[in-house]
Amino acid sequence: MDVSGDWNLIILPRVINDYDLDFAKEVMSLPEGKTMIQCYQCSYCTASCPVHNYWDERYNSRHFIHLARLGLIDELQKRADVMWRCVSCHKCTHRCPKGVLVEEVLKAILKTMAKKGLIDEYPSKKFDKFFTESVLEYGRIEDGELLFGWIEKQGYNVVKDPILKKPIPFLGETPEWLKQLVMKPIKSMNISFLVLNAKHMLFHPRTKNWNKFKQVLRKVVQEEGGLT
């Protein structure tokens, strides 16, 4: 009698029974996913990829392209926890001998997975959405507000000013890494810049003539389902 439990492995479905070719079709129907078809699996992209090299070898752009092209959904889903880890350094796209826009294709794959409900909302997307919301609202972003707004979203207890209800930097809870990251440049910063930054945080810089354009942008984003 097998007491190791290993025999159970044998009944797990390992055989690929079919391809989901509609998935690839959908990826390639996106303008940024079009070039996926050109890949010949040389792995120049993966060999250049810092995420693959220095973080986790399961992040493998070439492999994702292969899986997406054949529509091996379960394999893609197995890697859902690492697939969003791209840092957009564009070494892959830059070096691809076949002219595949690898970085864009990977994003197209992620978008398609999200659209089909094959992946939960991944951490990077949360920030992407937060950032894009800010752009859509004001036309411009403000570094400080973005940063501390995000920190607030992460569950830190930030202190807000009573009138405009905007987070005040470093007064409330602040992650240790951020303190270290910011304190050094701030010490050497011209005081007038600090004043300007504070002003910007309170009064978010806006693009004028933005409202009409904003409506169109929102419509387009909604069509693509980007913020859902």
């Binding site: 390992r14 055989v15 690929i16 029974n17 079919d18 391809y19 699996q41 492999h63 292969h66 899986l67 054949l70 091996l72 394999e75």
Partner: peptide, 12 residues
């Protein structure tokens, strides 16, 4: 075997 995925396959 799809040698890239490293999985056996029996595809119609």
């Amino acid at each position: 075997e799809d040698t890239i995925v490293q999985r056996p396959a029996e595809v119609p």
